[in-house]
Design a protein around this nucleic acid. Sequence first.
DNA 1: GCAGTAAAGTTGTCAATACAACTTTTCCAA
DNA 2: TTGGAAAAGTTGTATTGACAACTTTACTGC
Lengths: 240, 240
Amino acid sequence: MLNSASPIPLYHQLAERLFSEIRAGRYPPGSRLPSEHELAETFGLGRPTVRQATAALIQRGLLERRRGSGTYVRSVPAQVDLFSLAGTLMSFEAQGIALASELDRPRTETIDEAGHPLQSREAVRLTRLSRVDGEAVLLEEIDFDAERFPGLARLVRKDRALSDIVEQHYRMRPESADQSFRVVTLPRPLAKRMGLAAGSAILRVDRTLHFALAPSAAFARMYCRTDRFAFSQRIGASHA
Amino acid sequence: MLNSASPIPLYHQLAERLFSEIRAGRYPPGSRLPSEHELAETFGLGRPTVRQATAALIQRGLLERRRGSGTYVRSVPAQVDLFSLAGTLMSFEAQGIALASELDRPRTETIDEAGHPLQSREAVRLTRLSRVDGEAVLLEEIDFDAERFPGLARLVRKDRALSDIVEQHYRMRPESADQSFRVVTLPRPLAKRMGLAAGSAILRVDRTLHFALAPSAAFARMYCRTDRFAFSQRIGASHA
DNA sequence: GCAGTAAAGTTGTCAATACAACTTTTCCAA
DNA sequence: TTGGAAAAGTTGTATTGACAACTTTACTGC
């Protein structure tokens, strides 16, 4: 069940296993996990290793420890950490939510929009609509500086994280981002696309991404339905 | 130097000590800390305890570990005030414009709200309404665990930052927070208070504050008008 | 039946140790 | 002088053991 010869640490293997068991409903929300001692016994591990595993899931907001009582599956609805620069697919994956995305064919065009960081530059525009259980929850329009990301249009795949492509193909990682939050009424064509009534209020997040040698090289506009999921963010006391 | 008889855990004492030494400049940004073995020796602790201490500071973004090399001080970013939305989100238009705030008299009550981290506990509730140019743009309800912050109700002043009170009187600092964003229709009494039509769509940010030895000890619910002021923030890449 | 107490169970903290994996330094040989 | 290998140093992972602090359960005496 756990492979101690694997290069993947045991605590990580255990965390993944517990995660999938929680997702599978073996430990429903609010229920208590087996005690640390018991888990250690079951998997042939030491208690510190078990604690390291559960600590990772606590960090992800899935578990909660109560001293003297036990370790419990949190019953609060999933918080998708969408606003922390971790990547859209990743943040849903971390909560065990199956995301079905459709990606429009990338278009290359010259940006002509006031306030856009790529104003009057060539950009590759990706539009991605993501659904959970068939219901549209997120529409993203992402513009990449065409000069900084040559050939991007041919690289994108429906189920490949954009952050992966940027990381592996261009060797670039966003270092920071500016983002702003606004409640807007959804433009008619987008409302139709998302299957919402025209004029629905929705959360729009505009994010400008900064890379090491290329500040403001990408811009993302995200329309988020917040009635279905709580989109969240983890912030530290000290921040960039 | 470290007191093992104290109810405060040794790892926390060490973390605080390292934190103040870093802040005092003993370990400047980019410099290497003494090795874990060395720290353990110096303070008469085991290495796991030392690691627990540095782990807390890594969590806070102050340190960084490099395998095989050492533990290093990160160039420390600016501190943000997690107690107010203005401390973490800044308005483009309102930058440089004074926010006029009015603070209600604190009330102590038992929380009975699903999903609230202080559920069924006693809490001190502060309500703060902020205006720009006489127009209400932000309504904040901040709940503190009454047990963790005894006497808080008598300490709050309009012109004194909550972070100062908590820091100086309770010796606590929020280490991190997570917050979720939702578009909601404003409850009638609050709509009236903010001078908006009942049923207006507004951005609601729910933030849970985490302290070193008291996770989720405070909760803030913030209602933001984003029609006239776009709330924006700068975020850094996560240092996981 | 009930309250109070004891016992058992569970997480929190900490020590000491060991080996693995990686980085940096040192040193030797070409 | 330089390249490469060895050695030393450092963090990563993991075990075992122990006690403290807290919660829940069980039991006992009334």
